[in-house]
Amino acid sequence: MSAVLRVPTVLRSAVGGKSEIAVDGATVGEVLQQLTNVYPAIKGQLLNDDGSLHRFLNVYVNDDDVRYLGGVEAAIRPDDEITLLPAVAGGAW
């Protein structure tokens, strides 16, 4: 059973227009690595040269921002939903 990766509009052109991709991997880092292997054009949009997350990319596993769960080391389980979201200016909060 694979986890599901949701791709935001701004990144879809780099993954053939897909909004959802089935992914395998035990950690967020493994999932993103697998994604960049299949879609090399997305690499610079996801990770910095040192393997850390792009500063304007938020990655959520289910509801949680992985930066507070160990970053790229955060664990992924089958059936997890991984959501990539660009960091944008917040609203009225």
Partner: peptide, 17 residues
């Protein structure tokens, strides 16, 4: 999930913290 709603971004580099 504001980043889902904002369609006007051209790339992640248009993001904001």
């Amino acid at each position: 999930p504001s980043g889902e709603i904002v369609d006007g971004l051209r790339s992640l580099d248009d993001g904001y913290v």
